[in-house]
Write a protein that binds this DNA or RNA. Structure first.
Length: 530
RNA sequence: CGGGGCGUGGCUCAGUCCGGAUAGAGUGCUCGGUUCGGGUCCGAGAGGUCGGCGGUUCAAAUCCGCCCGCCCCGACCA
């Protein structure tokens, strides 16, 4: 393809609205263009990269007998997988089954300056793995993850793995490209390697000194509706208070979660222990309906709500809690003596610095971009959706669904961050938009133009995609654009090269170039792409 | 939701505080010449309702009000 028709104006200056170096190169080289807040269009170069990524992934999934379908972006992917499965899954003979789709996906919270890494509009590889049993699922999940991680590996993308959690998910894994500017987080233990996303992370509760339980006592605490206000007013640390969080389950049941005042509720964990698919913050009216007072709530004497207490709050003696009366709190509230709970569970949010649940070491936060996620749905939820198949025994059995999502847009963004240098991009040959950047320095010498068109024909005959730069520009402009766009190989046809016996070849990122015959040049490209 | 900043040729930005005549630079684009291996040089040219509406004024990119758009920060955190 001729540079002229690529319809790209490379930029000398960085765009004002992108911060990350790789994303700036994507814009400057004409791979992508910002079209709105967090919205990026792919130009010809970017689209070619996306197509090549998809082709590679599809080839990987074909090895696993994956069937490509299409899920429009308007539908919820999980519901769509369930619908399709319900309609077409009949027999155990079909299992394990692998379906996938390249679908548009809207990210909920785009961030400024992040280019593709934070774009709102993304394209994801959605993958559904249906298995006959958890054993079968575990094996098949390993194969699918292996293929997809293998692709990331072949693109030179390092990833960190960790546990992932979401409502309705039994087990999950996330794989993150480490990047300081990323929006995703893994909490990792340097001692033992424990690694999890915050929503999935557990931590070891460290208890204070044992104390004798003091007598319950009501105190006036005017205008203390938040933990911070309360702790300041009573001059106690926040860890000496109990925080009450009210959530409403899908069935309308009110859930009263109690965590220590210095902790936060992990909603995903609460969903998990309750076995519900979602929770929403309760309305004040719903809270009052069970006899609690927003801002001054206490589990003491409460009826009509499901009470779940974090294990740390349950083990902490003499906490300050609400009195269920505006302007009053209770001192010395003790779990067991003063109130009971439906269950004591780990429902507090883990943070950097908390103790590792496995070995007690400190958890540290690593930022990055999650590229791949695997999530196995809770069997109970699938059974509730009557997603069943006929087993070999002749009985109906619930199916196990594992979803994988690989965000292609994020992946392209991360590739640009991973594969760029001071002068531009240098994407792996397997996904670069063209195989060769062919520079023609014709000048007034017709022999050069002739040699160039001969080389172009030879390359294309060999199935090599070529970006032909035959613009009337000075050499420096062309070389700089070649570096910026960063195709794996630059071939230069010029008077000088012809005198030296052929064309000049230079690998992107190499300082040295060499002169080859046209045949050798074609062979070099073929080697490079393989 | 609150506070702050920004909006000027395609792009990156001056100019606004302190109002003044055809509104600027670089880059990009077009044309002519020049150069011909790392963003050549010279000249000519096209291209802007200065985000929008209204107000003050002899005169508004500039001051005032409202609106729109973009950005940053803070925001309940129960």
């Amino acid at each position: 393809m001729r540079f002229l028709y690529l319809f790209v104006q490379t930029r000398r200056e960085n765009p004002a609205d992108v911060d990350l170096p790789g994303q700036q190169f994507l814009v400057r080289a004409g791979y992508i263009q910002r079209l709105g807040r967090g919205v990026y269009g792919l130009l010809a170069l970017g689209r070619r990269v996306e197509q090549r990524l998809e082709a590679r992934l599809s080839a990987s999934l074909a090895r696993l007998e994956g069937a490509e379908v299409y899920l429009p972006g308007e539908v919820d992917a999980r519901s769509a997988w369930l619908e399709i499965s319900r309609s077409h899954l009949r027999s155990y003979k079909q299992l394990p089954a692998l379906l996938f789709s390249y679908s548009p996906y809207l990210e909920p919270s785009p961030r400024r300056g992040g280019g593709l890494i934070a774009s709102a509009t993304t394209r994801v590889l959605e993958l559904a793995l249906l298995s006959a049993s958890t054993d079968q699922a575990a094996g098949a999940e390993g194969l699918v993850a292996g293929e997809l991680l293998g692709e990331l590996g072949s693109l030179g993308m390092p990833v960190l793995g960790g546990a992932s959690a979401a409502p309705g998910v039994e087990t999950g894994q996330a794989w993150m490209f480490p990047l300081a500017a990323g929006d995703d987080v893994l909490l990792q233990c340097e001692e033992c390697g424990y690694s999890a996303e915050p929503a999935a992370a557990r931590f070891r509760r460290v208890q204070g000194e044992p104390e004798t339980q003091q007598a319950l006592q009501e105190v006036a605490t005017p205008n203390c509706k938040t933990i911070a206000e309360l702790a300041t007013f009573l001059n106690v640390p926040e860890s000496r208070t109990a925080k009450a969080v009210f959530m409403t389950a899908p069935d309308g049941q009110l859930v009263f979660a109690v965590v220590r005042g210095d902790c936060e509720l992990n909603e995903t964990a609460l969903c998990r222990v309750l076995g519900v698919e979602s929770l929403r913050p309760a309305l004040d009216g719903e809270i009052r309906a069970v006899g609690a007072e927003p801002g001054y709530a206490t589990p003491v004497g409460l009826k009509g709500a499901r009470v779940v207490v974090d294990s740390l709050a349950a083990a902490s003696p003499n906490l300050v809690a609400g009195a269920n009366r505006p302007g009053y709190h209770l001192l010395n509230v003790n779990f067991g003596r003063d109130y009971a709970a439906e269950m004591v569970a780990e429902i507090a949010q883990a943070h950097s610095g908390d103790a590792c649940p496995e070995c007690g070491g400190a958890l540290a936060e690593t930022r990055g971009v999650v590229l791949l996620r695997a999530q196995r749905s809770l069997p109970g939820i699938l059974a509730g959706q009557s997603l069943l198949y006929m087993a070999e025994s002749g009985r109906t059995q619930p199916v196990t669904l594992t979803r994988f999502t690989l965000n292609l847009t994020r992946l392209m963004g991360c590739l640009a961050e991973r594969w760029s240098d001071a002068s531009g991009l240098r994407l792996p040959a397997t996904v670069a938009p063209f195989g060769v950047y062919l520079v023609v320095l014709a000048g007034k010498n017709p022999a050069v133009a002739e040699a160039a068109s001969g080389l172009l024909a030879a390359l294309e005959a060999a199935g090599i995609s070529v970006l032909l730069d035959d613009r009337v520009e000075s050499p420096g402009v062309k070389f700089n654009d070649a570096d910026l766009i960063g195709l794996p190989l630059r071939l230069t046809v010029s008077e000088r090269a012809l005198q030296q016996g052929g064309v000049e070849a230079r690998l992107r990122g190499d300082a040295e170039s060499r002169v080859l015959t046209p045949d050798e040049a074609v062979r070099l490209v073929l080697d490079l792409i393989l």
